[in-house]
Design a protein around this nucleic acid. Structure first.
Length: 594
RNA sequence: GCGGUGGUGGCGCAAUUGGUUAGCGUACCAGACUGUCGAUCUGGUGGUCGCGGGUUCGAGUCCCGUCCACCGCGCCA
């Protein structure tokens, strides 16, 4: 080895030892006939001293610059008491250099790598290798590693096998847009990169693998968000002969280990469970942040008689009115309210109605349409107290829920209703099996077409019409999401193992037997040869680690992420290819290059 | 596809109603300095204000277009 110790390792106990360190020059403090260098590696910083005891070495050392890579041999000495640096773990010692070697020099760096440097994202991404040297990024990757390691340990202990599934697969028409890979051998045909190993993991169950997991890369060619990258990592799990409770228990054990090993935080299973319908009613979404209350309330009945056109028109056309009470909201200014109105408009709401409760009186534009007892009834339903603001949205159900859910999250954050470092898990269960697709005028699978049906709804499932507004929408699936602080961390379900049920699902989805055979023929064949009941789930590793570290952006926990336009600023992928490569593949560009 | 925010020395930012030679911090370069640790002090280099067009006596600033980054909506079974 080119070193005897790392730069984060030496302590008082090492005093008088002769050591060799290797690392980057973090910093140089030159006092003329005395010079200090902070030498950095993954593990930390160690102060190296150059002085007149070794004038030739000092002279050479003074030519050294930031980010050069050095090998330093010297003696560990204890710092005098008044020179101990309590901010450094190695601050009790320093190494007096006896000799050093320059492994490599560095061009002047585009930005500093110390913990204080403020650098924009674009610059960080272009020079990601420099960004990765920063202690924060080192920690992010370290925590990510610890999480994956903890998961593997738990899963191994539970008898799961980690099995790899293909990256080059077959496109299936449902779901996200596929990334396609042209086949050279079969020109005109394409592989698709997996959106998830869904079908393969189910086939592993048919193949008797019983307990499978994989920390798997997934690809979706859709537009990006702070928490969505075109390639991302799922902790993919499938279990035979398992019920949802078994899945929950395994995942909870993984979460406990991941939080413990990742960031030293104790989380306490079992996690709360909440049916989808309750979550939608109370929080307006299927991923509620339960760190704070601010529950939504349906006011349709209470405001039915109120002569407020905004409400009556909506109710007559089949919409709903919901509201919430914001503690202390009476203090909001007109500007605040305009601001919040803009927020709900993003989700399609036409406006935000509000009534202040202050000094025992009500104020706000809609007040005049209410009778006093109606106001009191609404106040009691919302639980509004003096000094609160009651906020209402009236519109189609979907819009009301989406806008109030966003408003609720905004209020939670703006009013500091939760603390950093608080982790509130909840299992959301009993999602609907189908959802109505307005544009296509048909029922779509809410999760995916292999999700099994809640036994209690089997009768409706088998008998209802597949028309708009039929009871099919009421059928609950046996599926579940794991939600943490308002973020969807995982999604899973019990799978269909009964051919008749599967047929019926396809029928309701308007997938003919021929189409089904064409799209998933191999899969349906597989299921026909003796399929164990099985269930699975897939937590997102990027989101999990980001949340543990307090980031909203998963790029912080991915070594080489892509921009919002799916570009890698470092490698400049995607890039051009030789025309020969295209010829080999039988491909021609039909859109002109810009 | 749509909406919002931003783009000014290497990096992070400022520049009032459109007005003189575009500033500040840091990095970098040179010099000084024996106890610093985000060293200090002195001096210095460095800018096509993202790009293109327009308005104007005059544009970093206003207008139009365009590109890039970020956030969100749509999209993401």
């Amino acid at each position: 080895m080119k070193r005897t110790h790392t730069c984060g390792e030496l302590r008082k106990a090492n005093v008088d030892q002769t050591v060799t360190l290797a690392g980057w020059v973090q910093n140089r403090r030159d006092h003329g006939s005395l010079m200090f260098i902070d030498l950095r590696d993954r593990y930390g910083l160690t102060q190296i001293v150059f002085d007149l005891d070794n004038p030739d070495v000092l002279e050479l050392g003074q030519h050294v610059r930031s980010e050069w890579v050095l090998q330093i041999t010297g003696k560990v000495i204890a710092r005098p008491d008044d020179m101990v640096n309590p901010k450094m773990v190695t601050g009790e010692i320093e190494v007096t250099v006896q000799s050093f070697k320059i492994f490599s020099r560095s061009a002047p760096i585009p930005f500093e790598t110390d913990a204080y440097a403020k650098v924009g994202e674009e610059t960080r991404m272009k020079y990601r290798y420099l960004d990765l040297r920063r202690p924060q990024m080192q920690r992010n990757l370290q925590v990510r590693h610890a999480v994956c390691h903890a998961i593997r340990e738990v899963m191994d202990g539970e008898g799961f096998m980690e099995i790899e599934t293909p990256i080059l697969g077959r496109s299936t028409p449902e779901g996200a847009r596929d990334y396609l890979v042209p086949s050279r051998v079969h020109q005109g045909k394409y592989y698709a990169l997996p959106q998830s190993p869904q079908i393969f993991k189910q086939i592993l169950m048919v193949g008797g693998c019983d307990r499978y997991y994989q920390i798997a890369r997934c690809f979706r060619d859709e537009d990006l968000r702070a928490d969505r990258q075109p390639e991302f990592t799922q902790f993919d799990v499938e279990m035979s002969f398992a019920d949802p409770d078994d899945i929950f228990a395994v995942i909870e054990r993984c979460m406990v280990a991941a939080f413990k090993d990742g960031i030293g935080v104790t989380v306490n299973p079992p996690f709360e469970r909440m049916p989808y319908s309750v979550s939608m009613d109370k929080y307006g979404c299927d991923k509620p942040d339960l760190r704070f209350g601010l529950e939504l309330h349906d006011l349709c009945k209470l405001v039915k008689e109120v002569e407020f056109k905004v409400f009556t028109a909506v109710l007559e056309s089949g919409g709903i009115v919901k509201g919430m009470a914001v503690p202390g909201g009476a203090e909001f200014s007109r500007k605040d309210m305009d601001n919040l109105t803009e927020l709900v408009k993003i989700y399609g709401a036409k406006g935000l109605a509000w009534i202040k409760v202050q000094n025992g009186e009500y104020s706000g534009a809609p007040v005049k349409f209410f009778k006093p007892e109606q106001l009191n009834a609404v106040r009691d339903e919302l639980g509004a107290k003096d000094g609160d603001m009651m906020m209402f949205v009236a519109d189609k159900k979907k819009i009301v829920n989406a806008s109030l859910a966003a408003l609720r999250n905004e209020m939670g954050s703006r009013l500091n209703l939760y603390k950093d470092g608080e982790f509130r898990f909840v299992w959301i269960t009993d999602f609907p099996l189908f959802e109505w697709n307005e544009e296509e005028n048909r029922w779509d699978a809410a999760h995916h077409p292999f999700t099994s049906i809640n036994e209690e709804d089997m009768e409706i499932f088998m008998t209802a019409e597949k028309t708009a507004g039929s009871r099919i929408g009421e059928v609950r699936s046996s599926s579940y999401d794991l939600v943490l602080n308002g973020v969807e961390l995982a999604s899973g379900s019990v799978r269909i193992h009964d051919a008749e049920v599967q047929k019926r699902v396809f029928e309701l989805l308007n997938i003919s037997p021929e189409q089904a055979k064409d799209r998933f023929g191999f899969f349906i064949d597989a299921l026909s040869y003796g399929t164990p009941p099985h269930a699975g789930i897939a937590p997102g590793i990027d989101r999990l680690v980001a949340m543990m570290l307090g980031f909203e952006n998963i790029r912080e926990v991915i070594a080489f992420p892509k921009t919002a336009k799916a570009i890698d600023l470092m490698t400049e992928a995607p890039g051009d290819v030789d025309s020969k490569q295209l010829r080999d593949l039988g491909i021609q560009n039909v859109t002109p290059k810009r």
